[in-house]
Design a protein around this nucleic acid. Structure first.
Length: 206
DNA sequence: ATCCCGAGGG
DNA sequence: CCCTCTGGAT
């Protein structure tokens, strides 16, 4: 068995059915939730989305929300001024140029304020389109498992993973790596004792 | 005290 | 490329 196949099978054993903790009822709620999750925990996002979508159920309503009112709801997330401004502008663009829908093109998504490459990939991935969303977890895990080099940019990590992994596995594997990096292969004190991926890992050589 | 589940701007 | 925005986690 090759190195990549071994790693994939170990990840499968750890996380049989990886799922995002973000629950959404619509494309709109999905997009906004993912924008809000930048530099925030899912728990924090889930704490504010109830009130947020109750007060502003649609892109139209949210685009007209008073800035101060939005900030008040988003405050527990951190970066709340930017996030309030961004989701307002994003909602305006959704109405004005996408007929109130969430676009499914990479470039259209990345043109939305608050949506960079990682966020766009998470959204596309949730739409069933094969993408690899590289956050700090995926980047760190990839580097430790020698699927990328330590100095690689997130974009380079994404390219290397797309090249190394079968397309049918992209979505599943990046979800698994996010979970693995968050809970076990942490940046600070990784739980290396008994880790099934130890044979392929170069921590802490780097 | 320090790092971090990003993105935008200079 | 490097800085900033913020609360939360450790």
């Amino acid at each position: 068995m090759g190195r990549v196949k071994d790693i994939l099978s170990k990840l499968d054993a750890l996380y049989a059915d990886p799922k995002s903790e973000l629950h959404h009822r619509s494309d709109f709620e999905l997009l906004i939730s993912v924008i809000l999750s930048a530099q925030a925990t899912d728990a924090a996002v889930n704490r504010v989305t109830g009130k947020l979508f109750q007060q502003y159920p649609t892109a139209k309503a949210m685009s007209k929300a008073p800035q101060a009112s939005l900030e008040a709801v988003l405050r527990p997330l951190g970066l709340y001024k930017n996030k309030a401004r961004n989701i307002k502008k994003t909602c305006r663009i959704l109405q004005e140029t996408h007929g109130g829908d969430v676009p499914r093109q990479q470039t259209a998504l990345e043109a939305l304020p608050g949506v960079g490459r990682k966020t766009a990939n998470v959204v596309l991935s949730a739409f069933g389109i094969p993408r690899i969303a590289v956050d700090t977890h995926v980047a760190r895990v990839s580097k430790r498992l020698k699927l990328a080099e330590w100095e690689d940019s997130p974009r380079t990590v994404e390219k290397k993973l797309m090249d190394a992994l079968p397309k049918s596995r992209w979505t599943r594997t990046h979800h698994q790596m996010i979970l693995f990096g968050r809970y076990r292969c942490r940046s600070r004190k990784p739980a290396c004792e008994g880790c099934p991926l130890k044979p392929w890992c170069r921590y802490p050589d780097i």
